[in-house]
Design a protein around this nucleic acid. Structure first.
Length: 131
DNA sequence: AACGTGACCCTAG
DNA sequence: ACTAGGGCCACGT
């Protein structure tokens, strides 16, 4: 899949400047296969490395809030995004603190001590897989 | 407009 | 190996 990474230079006074950014993060996240995981930094890097990794988490939080508010299945598999060490640092932003781990385990991903087991092997890098 | 905060990451000491 | 500090981007006061 090809992705028109919006450079930070595209800082026009658009009606919804952040919509593209959120949409991009969500789109990439949707491409992470079940049973695999990626990291905030990997997504940020794929989108052009200009986006801070923190902003990726912000976008995912928004996705989760939308899902919770609309009471429907999360349109974005945010549980497949962890930090660079494989830790489930975003678990407290799910409906339940254990929802993230449960979703991962339901896909066959084992989690121990808030950390993905075999993270290196399950890691899915968009820059390498979508290239 | 400046400032603080946050699901992060890299580089120096 | 461990800890600090700075850089990164979006958002709410």
């Amino acid at each position: 899949m090809k992705k028109p990474a919006p450079p930070a230079a595209a800082n026009q006074s658009a009606p919804t400047p952040e919509r593209n950014y959120f949409a991009d993060v969500h789109e990439v996240t949707r491409l992470v296969p079940p049973g695999r995981v990626t990291s905030y930094g990997a997504i940020a890097h794929y989108l052009g490395a200009r986006h801070g990794s923190r902003a990726v988490g912000y976008a995912l939080m928004a996705a989760n809030l939308d899902a919770a508010t609309l009471r429907r299945e999360a349109p974005v598999p945010a549980h497949r995004v962890v930090n660079r060490l494989g830790q489930l640092t975003g678990r407290h932003h799910f409906p339940s603190p254990i929802a993230m781990q449960e979703r991962l385990e339901a896909e066959g991903v084992r989690v121990m001590d808030d950390t993905v087991v075999d993270f290196q092997r399950l890691f899915w890098d968009p820059a390498r897989e979508l290239e």
